[in-house]
């Protein structure tokens, strides 16, 4: 009699498979690695962040936490959102949910892939930033890793919410457009205090601004930004519940 492979093996297999799909996709690689690297270098060589620098805190120190936050948004929201939208269109979600993997295993596999790709992004960005003179606050590193995981969860839930409710072409447009808008003015790479007055308060309530601010607090000053953490946790719960409620498998 046929039997399923153990749950952990099914999830690990699907996670590995989805990771390879993401790494083999050229557009995804540009979004995941090339654009964040360009943002890092761009912010380090231009005077855009100069109003926020101080003795001992250079451009790259302010830029790097935001670029790490941008990586989470690239992979979890835009990358996984688009991939899931097209999987849904082609019936891949339906087919895989008839195998022992099931719907839960499928979502868990996607989460594994996001975590692995984000881990690789963090290694690449951190290595380049360290070469450029980045000196993160050692006290904030553990907190920053936890915040990145929470940010990835919030953006994965948001990406799946979009992918599971509209056509894949619309998912492609929405997640790319939001990525550009939030990267430019969402408080993620450019801190809210460097944005025009009215925007500053608003962006701190966005998942992008909250993740950017929380990572900057941790890696610049070694502090735990409780307000930003609460905002991010709120987005994770709300979009998670909404995705479970409204996600359409076909």
């Amino acid at each position: 009699m046929s039997a399923p492979a153990p749950l952990a093996r099914r999830i690990a297999l699907q996670g590995g498979y989805e990771t390879m799909c993401m790494l083999r996709n050229g557009e995804q690689l540009i979004l995941a690695i090339v654009l964040p690297l360009l943002a890092l270098v761009g912010l380090a060589v231009t005077p855009l962040l100069d109003p926020l620098t101080s003795p001992g805190t250079g451009r790259v120190d302010i830029a790097t936490p935001g670029v790490l936050a941008l990586c989470a948004m690239s992979t979890a929201f835009t990358g996984q959102g688009i991939a899931t939208g097209f999987d849904r269109r082609y019936g891949v979600l339906r087919f895989l949910s008839t195998t022992p993997l099931g719907r839960t295993g499928l979502i868990a596999g996607k989460a594994v892939a996001v975590a692995v790709v984000l881990g690789l992004q963090v290694l690449v960005i951190s290595a380049v930033a360290l070469l450029m003179g980045w000196s993160p606050s050692p006290a904030g590193i553990a907190v920053a890793i936890l915040l990145l995981a929470l940010g990835a969860a919030a953006f994965t839930a948001l990406g799946l919410l979009v992918a599971g409710t509209v056509r894949p072409e619309a998912t492609l447009a929405i997640t790319n457009l939001l990525w550009i808008l939030l990267a430019a003015g969402g408080g993620i790479v450019i801190p809210p205090e460097a944005l025009p007055g009215q925007l500053a308060g608003l962006v701190q309530l966005l998942p992008s601004g909250a993740l950017g601010e929380a990572l900057r607090s941790a890696l610049l000053a070694g502090q735990f930004n409780f307000t930003a953490f609460l905002v991010l946790a709120g987005w994770t719960v709300l979009s998670g519940v909404a995705a479970v409620r409204w996600f359409k498998w076909s």
């Binding site: 399923p4 099914r10 019936g91 087919f95 295993g105």
Partner: peptide, 22 residues
């Protein structure tokens, strides 16, 4: 309320295939 054990005993070919294009 299918469990993974039940799904392991059943094979499904969908009308639209359900295969990833890449």
């Amino acid at each position: 309320r299918a469990t993974s054990s039940l799904r392991a005993r059943v094979g499904v070919m969908l009308q639209d295939g359900g295969l990833p294009p890449a």
